[in-house]
Write a protein that binds this DNA or RNA. Structure first.
Lengths: 396, 396
DNA sequence: CTGTTAGCGCCTTCAA
DNA sequence: TTGAAGGCGCTAACAG
């Protein structure tokens, strides 16, 4: 990476137009205290020279970069696993951030904010310096929970506006925007038990270090406590991949061959799909013999056979809201940290036992299905989000 | 967006360590002319203060930003059209760029390059200033052909390293990295005619302003010229959406009800899928009555019924190669502009008449299937790309 | 309305 | 091996 050559500066423009640099600067920023004739002359000079302001110099002077950073995981290039599990989620988040940026552009009078994407390294040793460096480049940071240690995030959040997407709602040292995984999971399990009488459940759990996974498990446990007829007959720990679901199903068949549980609850759709495949291959009928449900509502969920009942995880909306909150915090860093819980939606297709063909999308509003009993959960401010019109449309 | 507060600077570190700022700078950049003991003291001070260099100041001084810009289209939030047509393509390109960045990171000794994402506005009036501004922020720009006027790109390319992804290989005023759409299309059509005896073709064309679309049409025309038995019985102009394919199929049925063509060649998979749906609903058997082929190899293509024969459009690889070339050009801006044509792969599933179940992936190397006759095409340097190992794997 | 000027934080040549 | 000092391009008081 070599240095850029000499470029046109404010001085060049000022000289050509026969004014001072201050005046040029004023024209560039469309300030009013400039005579029309002067302005025209400067504009002319700018056009003639093809002048473009140097962003670095502007940032240095303004102490503001007009950039926000988005940290993405490095792709593993695992291509055999339904388009890479959570990569799709990050693409959705990115879309949401972009959507917010787009919606906000018209009101920023040319001060467009752009997005600086940084790849989080695979190892902790690699990610820490990279995030440090990032904090020197941007006005604020958006980061998805799960691949960066929490203490590091706290340190960062102390020095720069930072919003965590999808973390634990109990996180108090930074802003959090997350989906209400717990309520969604509870609602789904309750649906299985109450509406379908599926009481003996098998859980395909997610990785313990991912808050989304543990929240979903907590939701299930809550629903179980609330419906005494329901109980967990077993579980399998996976890592959100299809193969984990397949492994879980194989273990399930080995252990309970003659006495299958009523339903398998997977912590995400990919694993549910793995379960589905193995079960179907083994001649088990879904949902007649055993129901299977997932979480996330990835695109493939609707194309499964049978179509997968799941919970919609609003990646795009998360991106939008997180971005909005980040701007708020940048505007006023003294704001108290809050957690924003986005409502979640049950997507009832037929793998749970609902009639095939009919798809029911049933919103789960956080306040209505609030899960109590967990201190860390009670502390958070449950924000019932009112998404902007375009965002809402984009998520449907 | 407010100003950042006072932060720790080089001076603070220098003062605490009892050295000059020059020395601190040397330590930060790990230069050798510093006594070990001094270095240690400075490091200590840096850690104590939590010093992070200000990227803007560095850029200003170094005249280099260590950022490259990627221009993405603003999402239309059209959600009813198979995950938004070409958005997926741009996600793939982004992945490719990220992959290259990741592969390159280990060799940059901490000078990581990051990615600045800019949304191209919908109107030309909006995009031009935004690209101008972008050029003041980054060391180089990556842009996908199709949503920005060519003259604007030429002007930009004259002032900053710029690589166009997916444009016309004949573009001479900037670097171009593009897939060999023409050869791919020719190979596919030739396959229909020679291997399946499908001679009477109906074309569902793409938008005229998109080079990809016109290249594909040219490939078809070339194949037709080379195989006298083949001919075009009609065509329909679409815009790459599923609904365009559906409309085309309806017109097809209306016009040729009793005398269907042998095959429908769609300029992309989305339109092919639209064709497929309408045809199947109308009771037309595919591929028995009429074959249908697409282009791009989107994820859904393999899930169609029948699975869609298509041509793999290597979005990820395009991103990787474009990024690699951009770095080359940044390193040496005096390089001559070249066009790099990436080979393309036929993906023979069953909608063309190939036996169901078997999927044949057949590489189409540019030099072997070179399409002549078009001056603009002959001029380009056909680069037979040798992708890096990880990239290749990522695309399979 | 317009010009002068002093930084913004860092890098680097030139001396010491 | 280290320090002093000028400059990167732009902005924003403060004068005029």
């Amino acid at each position: 990476v070599a240095r850029r050559g000499k470029v046109v500066t404010l001085y060049d423009v000022a000289q050509l137009a026969g004014v001072s640099t201050a005046t040029v600067s004023r024209v560039v920023h469309d300030q009013h205290r400039v005579r029309a004739i002067t302005k025209a002359r400067v504009r002319q000079a700018i056009a003639e020279l093809g002048y473009v302001p140097d962003a670095a110099a502007q940032s240095l002077s303004l102490r503001r970069t007009d950039m926000i950073g988005l940290v993405r995981p490095e792709g593993h290039a695992v291509h055999d696993d339904i388009e890479n599990s959570n990569l799709l989620f990050h693409d959705e988040v990115l879309r949401g951030v972009e959507a917010h940026l787009r919606d906000v552009q018209p009101h920023t009078r040319g001060r467009d904010v752009s997005l600086l994407i940084t790849l989080a390294g695979a190892t902790h040793a690699a990610v820490s310096p990279r995030l440090q460096a990032l904090s020197g480049k941007v006005d604020g940071i958006l980061i998805t929970q799960g691949f960066v240690q929490s203490p590091l995030l706290e340190r960062l959040a102390a020095r720069i506006p930072l919003v965590i997407i999808g973390g634990a709602p109990s996180q108090r040292s930074a802003d959090v925007v997350t989906a209400d995984n717990r309520s969604g999971s509870a609602a789904l399990v309750t649906h299985l038990i109450r509406d379908h009488g599926r009481c003996r459940l098998f859980l395909v759990d997610g990785p313990p270090y991912l808050t989304d996974a543990s929240e979903r498990r907590l939701g299930l446990e809550h629903a179980l406590r609330a419906s005494p007829s329901g109980r967990l007959v077993g579980s399998h720990q996976g890592s959100f991949y299809v193969r984990d679901g397949a492994a879980a199903a194989e273990r399930l068949l080995a252990l309970y061959r003659e006495d299958l549980p009523d339903a398998v609850v997977a912590a995400n759709d990919q694993m549910a799909i793995g379960v589905l495949r193995v079960l179907v291959e083994a001649g088990v009928r879904v949902p007649q013999d055993v129901a299977v449900v997932g979480f996330d509502d990835v695109y493939l969920a609707r194309l499964c056979d049978p179509p997968l009942t799941t919970v919609h995880h609003p990646g795009r909306l998360l991106g939008q809201r997180a971005c909005a909150r980040l701007f708020d915090r940048i505007a006023d860093p003294s704001l108290p940290h809050v957690a924003e819980l986005l409502p979640i939606e049950l997507v009832l297709r037929s793998s749970c036992g609902c009639p095939p063909g009919a798809v029911l999308r049933q919103p789960v509003y956080a306040p209505e299905t609030a899960v109590d009993g967990s201190p860390s959960h009670d502390e958070v401010a449950r924000t019932t989000t009112t998404p902007t019109a375009p965002s809402r449309g984009a998520v449907d």
